[in-house]
Amino acid sequence: MNSNKGIRNLFIYGGLFFFAVMAVLTYDTMQQLPHRAPEITDEVNAGKMVWHKYDCIGCHTILGNGSYFAPDLTKTAQRKPHEYLKNFLINPKIANPKATMPRLGITEEEAGKLVAFLDWISKVDTNGWPPKPILAAPAMVSTGELSAGQKIYQSLNCSECHTLNGIGGTMGPDLTHVGSRRDRVWLKGHFKDPQKYVPDSVMPLVIASDADIEQLTDYMLTLK
């Protein structure tokens, strides 16, 4: 009577078969998850609750999934100082005047938990994602030999927070024309004690020899 019976049964039983395979793989995955990430402490779990409470995923991505409107937060806790992250969460514009993230009313306690959660997720084994930028090194190389100051700039990872000619981070001020804004005394003093020159600055103390700081300052002064 039903000429399509064969293919109908293939649909029903085939579908159930693939669901069964999926269920087995899911069971195995769940068994493996605890070995692929650090232990989930109560603080980490509390941080995850804070993550959900403020609908962070409504703008950010995490593990690459989310809303693509703001940076991915999977590895943030490894890249930024935790104190900075806490201050940023409590009041983004105080920590970084250029921040577009709104102040959500996150308390100090909640910020601490959230950072613990972000620290946990940054240590999850994600099969190598996100990959290291393969063009990063060539893009930074200028045509000529690097000056001593440029080498120090790279070795201290200044570009993690600062931008030079469009390349680098946005956490600190853009340094493309810093040489026309600041003089030698200011720059050197600031390297040795950032907070004395810029109150509430999150810039860490530059730990380098006096000679290196001198060369870094020379380099900064060429940026006009």
Partner: peptide, 9 residues
């Protein structure tokens, strides 16, 4: 992803 520029930039 390839050149390592900042997300916001």
């Amino acid at each position: 992803r390839l050149m390592g520029l900042d997300y916001i930039a």
